[in-house]
């Protein structure tokens, strides 16, 4: 692709991701409605789709208030950080064999790095708010991210081992015969859980647990800054879905349809699955969350790595 083409495509991805995240807010509420035997937003436009516009309008016109007791620069920086980090993550996603922004040989590491940056946003937002709930939310988030970060990376190592590359395009290409969701089903399982925790979506939304912490790290946030946090969360959701598609479900691979359509379809189904998790699974206690991370998921991941390594050696050998 030419320089200009890359820039244009980059801008397109940003707009698409942000727009997708916006529509996702509406879509999630509708889907939750379907599963919970109610309607969800249905008043504005067909199926209530203009609810997105209404929400945006509301968030845009809200008073851009910063609490007088907050640490002002950090308070402003935090929500931007999460959006930027998430958007950067999209750079390495291969949407089709020739539709991608960046194909670097450390694509996977780049993605892991970007998602890890998001923890700073949450932690800084919690600290800067100078509010006990926000602080607790931020601390929980930090602990949660650190815990789940560990095996998130490890859970992908099986994929890397099988492929022999960190390049995402290479990983997709390596799945021509068999999607990694079959040999790496343990990796898939742990990665999904880690992904949910990383994007602190339900059921792992302890940093913002309403019942205990009012709204957790973003208690003091309102208007557009709050919207940025939400945007970051939904971008994270899409990004994780893209990565799962890429790493375990063969990315763009599929018969008859154009590759990009396959890709989008798979991402869409995985997003629906995330929403289903939200609709169905209750939030664990914080100590349960930690137990799950360290005592179950980490050993499971290591076990997966061991088996995968052994099999890889055996196949080669």
């Amino acid at each position: 692709m030419s320089e200009l083409g890359t820039i244009t495509f980059g801008l397109f991805i940003i707009v698409a991701a942000v727009g997708g995240a916006a529509v996702l807010t509406w879509f999630e509420r509708r889907l939750l409605g379907v599963w919970q035997d109610r309607y969800g937003p249905n008043r504005l436009g067909p199926l209530g789709v203009f609810q997105v516009a209404a929400d945006m309008l509301k968030l845009l016109t809200k008073d851009d208030w910063i609490p007088p007791f907050a640490d002002r620069p950090v308070f402003v920086f935090a929500p931007t950080a999460i959006v930027v980090a998430m958007l950067l993550g999209f750079a390495v996603v291969p949407f089709s064999p020739d539709l991608y922004l960046l194909d670097i040989n450390i694509g996977l590491l780049f993605f892991l790095g970007m998602t890890s940056l998001a923890v700073y946003a949450v932690l800084l937002g919690g600290l800067a708010s100078n509010n006990k709930y926000a602080l607790l939310g931020g601390l929980r988030s930090a602990a949660q991210m650190v815990s789940y970060e560990v095996f998130m990376g490890l859970s992908l190592m099986g994929v890397v081992m099988l492929t022999g590359s960190f390049s995402l395009r290479a990983i997709v290409e390596a799945q021509r015969d068999l999607w990694y969701c079959i040999p790496q089903f343990l990796g898939l399982f742990t990665f999904i859980i880690a992904g949910v925790a990383e994007s602190h979506r339900l059921p792992f939304d302890l940093p913002e647990a309403e019942h205990e912490l009012t709204a957790g790290f973003h208690t003091e946030y309102g208007g557009m800054k709050f919207a940025m946090f939400m945007l970051g969360e939904y971008l994270g959701l899409i990004l994780i879905s893209c990565m799962i598609t890429t790493l375990f479900f063969g990315g763009w691979l599929g018969p008859w349809l154009p590759p990009v359509v396959w890709f989008c379809l798979k991402v869409f189904i995985i997003i629906c699955f995330f929403i289903l998790l939200r609709a169905g699974i209750p939030r664990p206690r914080y100590d349960q969350l930690m137990t799950l991370g360290w005592k179950i998921m980490l050993p499971l991941t290591l076990f997966n790595l061991l088996i995968t390594g052994a099999i890889a050696l055996w196949l080669e050998g």
Binding site: G33, V34, W35, D37, R38, Y39, L276, L277, G280, I281
Partner: peptide, 28 residues
């Protein structure tokens, strides 16, 4: 452990089935 896991999946499956039930909401 596995039982708990199974229970989670059963929950998800039950909820998925609700895709085909009618909304209870009355349109006041």
């Amino acid at each position: 452990m596995l039982k708990a896991l199974a229970s989670q999946f059963r929950t998800l499956w039950t909820i998925l089935q609700h895709s085909f039930t009618k909304a209870e909401t009355v349109q006041y």
